[in-house]
């Protein structure tokens, strides 16, 4: 505060023009660009693409030698979807936990913006980052196009599915970021939740093998993520309920996150 003294002019106090605010869009822009300014996001992209690349390379090498493996356009999206249990918590752990710990949440929550807008902006940013990552994996499909005949419809289905799947997973892991200020705890709980939802299909078979009654096994299975992607969307079957499952997961998770942020701040 030594260089410039504060100005005491009054010219600042004119009426400031305001228009229709789209706070979620502003929050989205900031958070989205923050991902591309953060080395962490590049680190995640590097690790994911390297992992996918090595496996994909192995897959096409094997397929080329065996001479009887048709091109499978769901290979990369399927793998990416599996990795989401690691990616999503890393993307979302800081989103709310950091704001909460740094106190910036207090400023944001005194702005004329509903919590939902703030949560939505944050979510869209993380989903946007995932979308970019997913688009990068289209390169695997392009390679398959040059060396085989992948089914374009099935590819579209599996990329669409992976995109929705990612949205749902990101929304769910965001809940934990709102619950705890500790990013590590948020990431750990997020990963555990997603892994459980990923493995629900296996749990369902186990429950069924234990002689459970009625549709409990089916219920568990349909609660899980894979039942709506692995056998249907990723193979090119577009079912209304699968799309709704992911959309509803996003809606419910964002709603819960908003509620938690609200309650936490009111009991601060």
């Amino acid at each position: 505060m030594t260089d410039t003294p504060m100005n005491h002019h009054e010219q600042i106090d004119h009426v400031v023009e305001t228009g229709v605010a789209l706070p979620f869009w502003t929050v989205f822009k900031r958070e989205f660009s923050a991902y591309f300014r953060s080395p962490v996001a590049y680190g995640i992209a590097f690790a994911v693409l390297l992992f996918l690349g090595v496996l994909f390379n192995g897959y096409i090498t094997y397929a080329n030698q065996s001479q009887q493996t048709p091109a499978d356009s769901t290979y990369a999206p399927g793998l990416l979807v599996f990795l989401l249990f690691l990616i999503a918590p890393l993307l979302t752990m800081r989103l709310i936990a950091e704001e909460s710990r740094e106190g910036t949440l207090e400023v944001l929550m005194t702005l004329p913006m509903h919590e939902g807008q703030f949560i939505l902006g944050k979510f869209l940013a993380a989903w946007g980052y995932f979308t970019v990552l997913l688009l990068l994996t289209v390169v695997y499909h392009l390679i398959l196009l040059t060396i085989g005949v992948p089914d374009l419809g099935a590819a579209f289905g599996s990329y669409l599915g992976a995109w929705l799947y990612g949205g749902a997973v990101i929304a769910i892991t965001m809940i934990w970021s709102a619950v705890t200020e500790d990013q590590i705890v948020a990431a750990f709980l997020g990963a555990a939740t997603i892994l459980v939802l990923y493995l629900a299909e296996i749990a369902a078979s186990w429950v069924a093998s234990q002689g459970a009654v009625g549709g409990i096994a089916d219920f568990i299975r349909e609660l899980g993520l894979q039942a709506h992607f692995g056998v249907t969307l990723s193979r090119g079957i577009l079912r209304l309920e699968d799309v709704l499952y992911f959309v509803f997961m996003i809606v419910a998770a964002l709603f819960i996150t908003t509620r938690i942020v609200e309650i936490r701040r009111w009991r601060a």
Binding site: D151, G153, A154, F156, G157, R235, G236, I237, L238, R239
Partner: peptide, 11 residues
């Protein structure tokens, strides 16, 4: 409501 997206109409 189901839609078969596959080019080869697998389903």
């Amino acid at each position: 409501v189901r839609l078969d997206l596959t080019e080869s109409s697998d389903f």
